[in-house]
Design a binder for these strands. Sequence first.
DNA 1: ATCCAAACCGAAATTTCTTCGTGAATATTC
DNA 2: GAATATTCACGAAGAAATTTCGGTTTGGAT
Lengths: 237, 237
Amino acid sequence: MPAKDVITAQPSAAPQSDNGWDSLLQEISHRPKRATERKQDRSKRTEQQILTGALRVFARDGISRSRIADIAAEAGISASTLYEYYKSKEDLAYDVPLSHLAEFFEGYHAAAANKTTRERLLLYLVMSADYAREHAEWARLFYLEIWPSIFVTDTDLRHSINDFTRVLLFLVNDAIAEGWIARDRNLYETVALLTGGINQIIITWLLYRKPRNLTKAGTEMAERLIAMLEIEAGATR
Amino acid sequence: MPAKDVITAQPSAAPQSDNGWDSLLQEISHRPKRATERKQDRSKRTEQQILTGALRVFARDGISRSRIADIAAEAGISASTLYEYYKSKEDLAYDVPLSHLAEFFEGYHAAAANKTTRERLLLYLVMSADYAREHAEWARLFYLEIWPSIFVTDTDLRHSINDFTRVLLFLVNDAIAEGWIARDRNLYETVALLTGGINQIIITWLLYRKPRNLTKAGTEMAERLIAMLEIEAGATR
DNA sequence: ATCCAAACCGAAATTTCTTCGTGAATATTC
DNA sequence: GAATATTCACGAAGAAATTTCGGTTTGGAT
């Protein structure tokens, strides 16, 4: 079944291509962890402590200023032991956000079940903002350092970042098929608009703690964006 | 004259408060350079060569991976000499984008003269994208490393980044006064929408070179954003 | 031409990341 | 449950980069 079918499918009240949806979210929230799994319980614990400590230190000092020695101390191990787990500081930095991303997608997948496309889109934007608020350290690392970094070539991470966009692409596609987002607008431009709008709110909050209430602001922005797209579709119909 | 006047002023065909506009752009495009000016011609040349070399190396390798020795080599000086000019690598990284920013604001100020608020807003967004295209190395450094960095405390740079938003705030304020942007919408949310939309296009271009034609995509996005705001204002009037 | 400050550089110090050899802890096999 | 193998941990040494320091050269005013 060519991907084009998603675009040319018939509009319907319930979101079409639910199979595509579930398999997409399935794939996204269960991306394989690293190939080499830890053998002993002790080291699974240590691995978790490294990730926790690294997240705290990276978020506090930024990747560049963070010191391996500090992270190791947070994790209660020596610096050299850390190299048994990650081959470099960069490698560690790029692994830290992955588990949170999977968690987000998993939570979203569950919350979006049995919803219309419009509700799913709204929920996605709202949950993005809300997850950033709930996991501010992670959000700092992810939105301010990882996402914009052109040097993220680590494939797992790059995939996960692209997944963020893929979900939106899927939903906007459905919305176009359902007729409430303008068909004659560039698909990627619409996605950029949605991503940009919500991310800008998140980034501003991370940098300046304004707006005070990120959940409220994210919801407002999400509702406004969707309403605008609907009006636009109506105006050009 | 309190700042509120900008908000409560009468709508008019030509943009009101042109004095405020000119003094804002004036201030923005002529932020003071560093306090200690170089004394000899030779070192003014060297300073320029450092900035040029640093921009190239930072854009190519990223701030973190860039080496002072490489930058010094590009500038044709020894590494230790570089420390006569900048007290650290970070310091240098944060100084590099400043002159380009001033140049952008200066160019915009000239281009925006004798235009309506709507034209000015459109021009601002379009020129932002276009300037990034024309100065891709600078844009990489600025949009992907500097802007999102929470650790930019260097006041000059922080000011300049905020200036980017201040111009939009000013224009949206005028547009609200003129009645073509909804008054009942949060001002900062509208600015976030504009900034986010256009930045997302720029960032995607920097990361993936898509869309191919950034100027065209930026123009499309800018026109769409403004049209949406106008429709929104009409719908809620 | 002389003098002084500014600019420059090589070498050394410092800081941080990373590797390596070895010993301790844990799991597996008999 | 002892012997063996594997995994995990660490201190010390090595490597790579930033930054400092002392002394030399250069530019420009007098």
